[in-house]
Nucleic acid binder design. Structure first.
Lengths: 189, 189
DNA sequence: GTCTATACGCTGATAGAC
DNA sequence: GTCTATCAGCGTATAGAC
């Protein structure tokens, strides 16, 4: 059974995604939940708390997934495949919250902004290191790792929007296509 | 000499990018320009007019560029290279306004929203058709054109943010790297 | 826990003096 | 064209009855 608080968070995520954080009012959220705005404050402290919780939860999920994959004994190439698979999985499972990571994080304030950007930067660094390993170990031809990272991450970040347009697509199929499309171009011939 | 109106638009674009459209107030813009908020209304009709002008201007630039390239007699592969080159050029030249295209267009209203999405959809369709031509004429191996389009466009859409982080990079070099990175993976071996 | 009532700051925009 | 003064409306959030 979903708690009232969980329900509020889901409604908020949906609206934040559709209209943006700043353009979504507490009255909007209340209407979506089916109560008056004042009642929301029995379950949450503020609008911003709601927002930062959504964002940091996602950032922590990605960090946890990255650490598990990175600490494994897979080859770096397999690690990249696992990472892509994780992004596809999250895009399907958390379509709304995940959109906030790409678009709305600028509205974070204070500690939560700092925490978020640290998690993100550290994630990106680990991702790039794995690409470097792929080159060092002869899986990839030598490319500009920064551009390769940037290109892969950009595509993965837009996955959620693309998936919501075409949700007739089988996630397993999607994953296969993406691994092929993002990695095969980098491989040594 | 820059008109006052042009100056207001530039200041607004910078702030819309940094804080988002909804979070930027007319008083913010006025401060950046160096006047009182009321004075802005001698040059513009409303905040939204300012916003939609910035967005539609960029959308029309892209459409114009696409049409010129598409109507040329280049091979589809060269057309793609020209398109990437155009994206790099615009990302360098219009860094602020271009960010609005990716992030802030949801705040468009009425006719301007309709006009914008039509321009964007038509742009994407033409882009995909060129990719299809590349496959048909044997430049690319047969791939899922939708995913290829999506992957290329996602990367190009993030160019501006990446470029603002690393503006020590030579745009000409950048262009070469991107053409290599985005197209070589698709080519027939 | 939910409601109604309300505080009060900030918003986009206008009126009218200079 | 720019300013000061001002408006009506909406924003988040709280107080207190039930």
């Amino acid at each position: 059974m979903k708690s009232k608080r969980e329900n509020i968070k889901e409604c908020a995520a949906r609206l934040f995604r559709q209209k943006g954080y700043k353009a979504t009012s507490m009255r909007d959220i209340a209407q979506e939940v089916g109560v008056e705005a004042a009642s929301l404050y029995n379950h949450i402290k503020s609008k911003h708390e709601l927002f930062q919780e959504l964002l940091l939860q996602m950032a922590n999920l990605f960090t946890k997934g990255m650490n598990e994959i990175n600490d494994s004994s897979y080859t770096p190439l397999i690690k990249l495949e696992k990472l892509i698979s994780m992004h596809v999985k999250f895009a399907v499972e958390y379509t709304d919250s995940i959109s906030l990571i790409t678009h709305e994080w600028v509205h974070l304030e204070g500690n939560s902004l700092e925490e978020f950007t640290e998690l993100r930067d550290s994630y990106e660094k680990k991702f790039e290191d794995i690409i470097k390993d792929c080159i060092d170990q002869g899986f990839f031809s030598p490319v500009n790792t920064e551009i390769a990272l940037f290109s892969i991450l950009s595509t993965l970040r837009w996955l959620y929007s693309w998936y919501s347009k075409k949700n007739d697509i089988n996630p397993v199929e999607l994953e296969k296509e993406f691994i092929h499309c993002l990695l095969d171009g980098l491989k040594k011939k």
